[in-house]
Amino acid sequence: MPNITIYHNPACGTSRNVLALIRNSGEEPQVIEYLKTPPDRATLEALIAAMGITPRELLRQKGTPYDALGLISTKWTDAQLIDFMLHEPILINRPIVVTPLGTRLCRPSEVVLDLLPQPQQGAFTKEDGEAVVNEKGVRIAKP
């Protein structure tokens, strides 16, 4: 059984980059396409707690019904925001990665490097052409 789980949206470039970085470490994660198989309330609440964030911090605005639902308003409780995410999983920001080293929302994609138990096994360049890891598997520092 994999010791890494990614809540993934294959249509998202950041999510694809994170999945590729996980695989570049030699790990094959459990991939949960959360739009097809959304988490239940207990799982979503556990993920939020493990990340140490609020439900509002997990809300995705871009490409979602965030504005149409009036989610910018602060009138919504945490429980209500979770209800919205359960009803409209596209509101859940991604990718979320769970490893023995922690649980994080991996935006930007390089955040996942801090969660991987194994080092990168070679160079990695994101889809947009940005080099993230050199040929020795070492993270490239941003200027």
Rank of each mutant, 00 (worst) to 15 (best):
D67T: 11
V97M: 06
L58I: 07
E127D: 15
L71Q: 03
K136R: 15
V138E: 15
L19N: 06
L44W: 00
E27R: 12
L91N: 01
S25F: 07
I96A: 06
E45T: 09
F124N: 01
N3Y: 14
P65L: 07
R16Q: 11
L21V: 08
N93C: 02
A68I: 08
L44Q: 01
R16E: 07
D40M: 03
R139L: 11
T64K: 02
G137L: 05
Q120L: 09
V138Q: 14
C106A: 09
V98G: 03
T54C: 02
N3E: 15
T77S: 15
K126Y: 11
G137R: 07
A11Y: 08
E27L: 15
L116Y: 04
N9D: 10
A46V: 06
M1P: 11
E135G: 03
L59W: 00
C106T: 07
Q118M: 14
T37R: 13
K136G: 08
P2D: 14
A131G: 11
V111A: 05
P65V: 05
S109W: 01
I90L: 05
I92H: 02
I82Y: 02
P89T: 03
T37H: 13
C106S: 08
D78F: 10
K75D: 13
N17R: 03
L21M: 14
P10L: 09
L71R: 01
M51H: 09
E135F: 04
P29R: 05
P100W: 14
W76P: 00
C106R: 00
P89N: 08
I96N: 06
E28M: 10
R60F: 02
L19R: 02
P143V: 11
V31E: 13
E135I: 10
E130S: 09
K36N: 12
A79Q: 13
C12F: 09
C12L: 10
D78Q: 11
L105E: 12
I32D: 08
I53C: 11
A131P: 15
Q30T: 12
R107K: 05
I22F: 06
Q30V: 13
T74C: 07
V138C: 07
R60N: 03
N134C: 10
L115G: 01
R60V: 01
K36E: 15
Q61Y: 04
K75L: 08
R23M: 13
F84E: 05
S15Y: 04
L69A: 02
A42K: 11
L58F: 09
R23E: 15
Q80T: 07
I22M: 09
T74N: 13
P55S: 08
L101Q: 15
